[in-house]
Nucleic acid binder design. Structure first.
Lengths: 214, 214, 214, 214
DNA sequence: AATGAATGAGCCTTCATTCAT
DNA sequence: AATGAATGAAGGCTCATTCAT
């Protein structure tokens, strides 16, 4: 059943354990030895599956971007309903939260691994921003949003920055209920960001949604 | 003429060299040995003036916040003129740029030094956000801006996040002319963020200012 | 054939090299770098087997106490013969000699690692003193020694102190023949300490033994 | 009024502060910087009065020995009264306590400063042991003690070792009442050591004294 | 595939001591 | 006499990575 693209189970386990530890303790604090120890595997095993620590981070980054892209694609499919949009927004925030070490560590990682920076520019500013722009454009077509190209281009940029800003201000761990609160706050913040560009005609349903996050 | 609050020259030199190296190479990459080596001083000298690396960062952080606070205070004094406001905004961005390693490293430093996080919350979310809120409130009084309290509160938050997001996306070094470009881009981005809350009456002068950053 | 309690060969080598260097040069003088250098291994290897220098000392201390306990247990088995007793005493002194850095360094280590002090109190004042007390009690039962409980309790204490006092006055290295001399002197000293409590009936054999150490 | 042998006030202060810190925190832990800091003087001043740290320790050691010698001399003067003897013993223990860092650190210092070891042998084994031997000899003349030369020679040695053993087992700090207890315990221990050599004729007064330390 | 011992450059920091003033 | 900034060798320890098995 092993398709060509399929990664070994161990590969996946290492990714999972690394993500968990990076999120909780910080990538800078967690060593490859920590990861192996936590998983009860040898460091050798870890280095059999990954050339180095950077490769783990890189893999996690790709999954992060992939998840973001999927959320945005899903949102595109339901771009007619404000409800669906906000649902996608929530999911996106949860996804960011589950990779929260990345927005926190990325900028300082650029110094260490300049390749990551280029990669990131390409993916985040490129692919993701592109998708988000597409989404906003679609919403404008449907007359949910309004605004000229420049305005929407900046909205895209601001939207991403506020998303990132949101996670970086959160603490490293949270109980499920704390997370609910955080996600709510994040959504509200993003809604306020978008609000000025909501078409007056769609204002009532938009405000109804906003009310849920007050 | 040595005032009480005055620090030794060496102290200042270490701060300067550290800031330069941190900005260029990244705080994570630069060790206390690097700093001493670059300055052609002994490590002992460095540790005579600072208990440890964290203390250097902490001192830089305090100067960063102090500078931000000063810019905001200056902006408050000239809050009647849109021109002056934007001038302050530019200065603020330049100031952030000159401490750019901080917004980039802060989130990953929280993992290492949780005390910094608390301190930061207090100063950045507290003092600086407070001053910014004051500024926006003043502008609303003068009918330059409009919006309810909640809107302006979120504007404050977004404004800070976009400022931070701005620097973190920049590369580590830049020629003077590159810097000019970056600052312009940053200002424009912030102006777009504020734009929806500009009172229609002040739209013409605002647009004129915006035009300069196009 | 590897039993569960068995430590790696390297572990043992490090212990051996450390003991040798500590005895010869002093624990305070010998750094972990010295140990690694002397063994022609990397510092990393040393720290792979021991968390820190204290752990090496702690391991040595445990072996020291274990050896002491074994000597005392052996002595208890042959407690009927004065000859055997003195043989055990000699062995004990040789054992102390082979860990001589410990009695010399222990008091100054308490300042650095207070945990060691508690541990030591428990083991030395507790376990070892207990065994020694048992031994003296047995000898009293057999009417080799005499004295009330308090006297014997103090004898235990004095015996330990004189043993310790003995090593601390010796120089750090000695030729085999010098060592013989030292051990003889130590035994004689201890015999003199015990002498007042020897039952007159056992005086002749006791004096015969003493004569060998004159 | 400054006699040739008189040391400056600062010299004395440094000695006092060092003794206090060494006793409380351990010579190994206390740096020359600590001493200067505690005294609110510059390190330069400290090094003006002492060539190095060792010289401070050496000076303290000399005072320690001098004090011991004085106690013994005083005891010699009153060697006819058991009461006076025990009083001297108490004083001696208090004196040792006030220099307690020395017996604790001496053996490990020998490794660092072999000169100290020679010095110590000469003074402690030589001068002090000589005086103590003299005292015991006197007491034998007065028929307070009994025992042949060898026995008394060993008693001297044991006496010194138990004194030293006594301090090294104590904790570093103590309240006045704790100190009283410790001194009592120490005296009792020493009395038990001497007891076998007390002339039966002097047993009753001796036992009376002992009773006070029970 | 996996082990896990080993590497070693390098990190942060200390501290006895010096020396220009 | 005194200051206090400066020295710099050295100390304990880490950690990404390698490699023989």
């Amino acid at each position: 059943m092993s398709k060509s693209g399929e990664r070994s189970q161990t590969f996946q386990h290492i990714i999972d354990a690394s993500l968990q530890l990076f999120n909780q303790e910080g990538e800078r604090v967690i060593t490859t030895n920590h990861i192996a120890e936590r998983m009860n595997i040898s460091t050798g095993k870890l280095y059999y599956h990954f050339r180095n620590k950077e490769e783990i981070i890189s893999e996690l980054y790709q999954r992060y971007v992939k998840g973001m892209a999927e959320q945005l694609s899903a949102a595109l499919k339901h771009s007619n309903s404000i409800e669906a949009m906000v649902g996608a927004m929530e999911k996106t925030l949860r996804h960011i939260w589950s990779f929260r070490f990345l927005p926190k560590s990325m900028p300082s990682l650029y110094y260490l691994h300049p390749e990551l920076a280029e990669n990131h520019q390409q993916l985040s500013r490129g692919q993701l921003a592109g998708k988000l722009a597409q989404l906003f454009a679609r919403l404008r077509e449907q007359e949910v949003l309004q605004g000229d190209d420049k305005q929407l281009a900046h909205l895209v940029q601001h939207f991403q920055m506020v998303q990132t800003g949101w996670v970086t201000t959160l603490k490293h761990s949270a109980t499920p209920s704390e997370l609910e609160r955080m996600v709510k706050d994040g959504c509200r913040s993003l809604l306020y960001l978008v609000a000025p560009y909501v078409n007056p005609r769609y204002r009532p349903p938009f405000d109804r949604v906003c009310a849920r996050y007050a």
